[in-house]
């Protein structure tokens, strides 16, 4: 027993430094949550009242106002679909160049990378709704403002995905092009582009899926689509119509997701 304990080895899962870092992260997270819980302004009566209010709202949503579908919801839905499709194309057209500029290997100028990266973060940080406020002020209410808003907001996501894909692409074929004396533009088209083509398709589909959801809310600030119908119904307290619109959004989103999954399986 004593001889065994002399040979006792200690087993610890993490080094002291790792432990400290983990503890620090947990501590900061806990502190942040504690701070948030302590200082947030929530009116308790509202919280207790919530279940009753939800039930009340649900009961007012029934029966669903199906009559409303063809005259108002369908045209708005079509507009939403157009808006999200245009926004995806525009977003790709703007996001891909910025993505290439942000990738250190395709664009070996540090300050260009940094500016491009700032554009990516900035466009993503400003939410679609705020972009929509701008574009409604610029172009007036309607789907054009909505499409632009979603397109500008998607630059960040699309560009980030692309710059990551470009940075991971294989050096070999690029070096071959450089050895053959290709210009930078030729390197991008012949060397990088074929390698990031799968990313292009998956990002395009994924973003389109997101953009449909996004375009459903823009009507709230007047930027067209099914959100406008929703906003009108809520303002007029027509809960049966609200229910119809929510159901429509739910079904469309599921349909789109199914389509995207099917295309992904076949193409990628």
């Amino acid at each position: 027993m004593t001889s065994a304990s002399l040979e006792m080895q200690r087993w610890i899962r993490f080094t002291p430094l790792q432990r400290l870092a983990r503890f620090a992260v947990f501590f900061v997270m806990a502190a942040a949550v504690a701070w948030a819980l302590k200082t947030i302004e929530i009116i308790p009566e509202f919280l207790y009242d919530a279940p009753e209010q939800v039930v009340d709202m649900g009961s007012r949503m029934w029966p669903i106002d199906w009559e409303h579908f063809w005259p108002a919801v369908w045209p708005a839905l079509v507009e939403t679909m157009h808006m999200s499709a245009m926004a995806t194309i525009l977003g790709l057209m703007m996001g891909i160049p910025v993505g290439f500029l942000a990738a250190g290997n395709a664009t070996p100028f540090l300050w260009v990378n940094l500016i491009a990266k700032f554009i990516l973060v900035a466009t993503r940080s400003i939410s679609t709704l705020i972009w929509a406020l701008f574009f409604v002020a610029m172009f007036g209410p309607g789907p054009l403002a909505g499409a632009l808003a979603i397109a500008f907001h998607s630059i960040g996501f699309i560009g980030k995905m692309f710059s990551e894909a470009v940075e991971e692409s294989n050096r070999g074929s690029i070096e071959a092009l450089q050895a053959a004396g290709a210009t930078r533009m030729q390197q991008i088209i012949m060397g990088y582009w074929p390698q990031v083509l799968p990313t292009f398709w998956s990002v395009a589909l994924f973003r389109w899926d997101i953009n449909v959801r996004e375009s459903a809310v823009l009507g709230l600030v007047g930027a067209g689509g099914i959100g406008m119908a929703l906003n009108a119904a809520i303002d007029l307290i027509q809960w049966q119509r609200v229910a119809l619109i929510l159901l429509t959004i739910f079904i469309v989103v599921i349909l789109i997701e199914t389509i995207v999954t099917q295309i992904r399986k076949k193409v990628i």
């Binding site: 947030i40 302004e41 009116i43 919280l47 209010q53 709202m57 709230l220 809520i234």
Partner: peptide, 12 residues
């Protein structure tokens, strides 16, 4: 929007 209708304006 729905939550605001249910629990009122504010962070909740």
């Amino acid at each position: 929007i729905i939550a605001v209708k249910a629990v009122g304006f504010g962070a909740l």
